[in-house]
């Protein structure tokens, strides 16, 4: 029985991260899967959420702004609002761009945000990051397995809420317009839809969800630093979405679970088979592995594990025919 505790501990820890990544992947899915917005700045918007929530909820920091000591829930809401505001500014400036141009711009924004986190000591604590980010209900549950499980439950509740809210959105007339814009923007505009406005809304909502994911991360780990928000994070979230199946929210969640599982397993295996002296370089193999999986999926199963289902509930015929059957 005593042997089970560390395993249970690890599984809880693992699932917490998977759930947090799933939230971020859902945000990206609204943008890419449903609207076709090539956002390669995921890490930047996650960082905005993480730092905002940390600053709002932590005890006063001696050398930097913030430490307002607000409740964690206020931090989460604040994270969404701040990520949404940053997305609004970026979106107004950049969303007229298409495809790779939007990708380059959002990538640049994310790198800039990461550099701000690294250098604006008064705001972000600089390279040392922010510590003492409160873990909700820690007084009650301590720091062990019980707290991890409680946090997993909270994260799952947040994920469920985000999933339901986004599902309702993508299956609505709003979601129908997003998909129309994704398929043919000129045709959508010729049918009275102002594409820019819909693209902007999709971008802002998606980034708010990413920011919420960042806040969940910050309060789980209790400590954030600029190196947590490098482009590799964006790459991971993208892989999760593509592997799971973009254009399907259940796919995004499945992808987060699958890719995080592979990432964790490969990390463990690599640590065991690579000699101590080469460990640092060996870790790069993890990234190679994820890249290989991504490429393989794109070749053999481009729709992902669970691909997009064609037809909104209203847009299917009487027999519930989605158009997938011959």
């Amino acid at each position: 029985m005593a042997d089970l505790i560390p395993i249970l501990s690890y599984v809880t820890f693992f699932l917490c991260f998977a759930v947090i990544f799933a939230v971020m992947a859902l945000g990206l899915n609204l943008q890419w899967g449903f609207t076709g917005l090539f956002n390669v700045g995921v890490a930047g918007f996650v960082a905005v959420g993480a730092y905002t929530s940390a600053i709002l909820t932590a005890p006063p920091y001696p050398d930097s702004l913030g430490g307002f000591g607000l409740p964690v829930a206020a931090g989460w809401v604040g994270a969404m609002i701040m990520s949404g505001l940053v997305a609004l500014v970026v979106g107004v400036a950049a969303l007229r761009l298409r495809h790779d141009y939007l990708a380059i711009t959002t990538f640049g924004v994310a790198v800039t945000l990461q550099l701000v986190a690294l250098n604006a000591r008064w705001l972000t604590g600089g390279p040392f990051g922010l510590q003492f980010i409160p873990k909700p209900f820690q007084d009650l549950l301590g720091t062990g397995l019980a707290w991890n499980m409680a946090y997993l439950a909270m994260s799952l509740a947040v994920l469920g809420l985000v999933y339901v809210a986004l599902e309702r959105l993508v299956k609505s007339p709003f979601g129908r317009v997003l998909r129309a814009i994704r398929e043919d923007e000129t045709a959508a505009e010729a049918l009275g839809k102002r594409a820019f406005s819909f693209r902007l809304q999709s971008f802002v909502i998606g980034c708010m969800v990413m920011g919420l994911g960042g806040a969940l991360y910050a309060h789980f780990v209790g400590y954030i630093a600029p190196e947590d928000f490098l482009p590799i994070l964006t790459f991971q979230i993208w892989t999760m979405l593509i592997v799971g199946g973009s254009g399907n929210n259940r796919g995004a969640i499945a992808g987060a679970l699958a890719v995080w599982l592979l990432w964790s397993l490969s990390g463990t295996v690599l640590r065991q088979i690579i000699p101590q002296s080469e460990q640092a370089r060996g870790a790069a193999l993890q990234i190679v592995l994820i890249g290989v999986i991504l490429a393989a999926m794109l070749i053999w199963r481009p729709r992902g594990l669970v691909g997009e289902v064609i037809g909104t509930p209203a847009g299917k015929d009487e027999k519930g025919n989605t158009g997938k059957k011959a």
Binding site: P173, D184, A188, G192, G311
Partner: peptide, 25 residues
């Protein structure tokens, strides 16, 4: 013609009507 290829015919047509309240988030 510019249909939305990955949408059903029904969704293609249901997109068009003006003033749909469901187009607001």
């Amino acid at each position: 013609p510019r249909p939305f290829p990955q949408m059903t015919l029904l969704d293609n047509v249901m997109l068009a009507p003006l003033g749909q309240s469901g187009e607001r988030v």
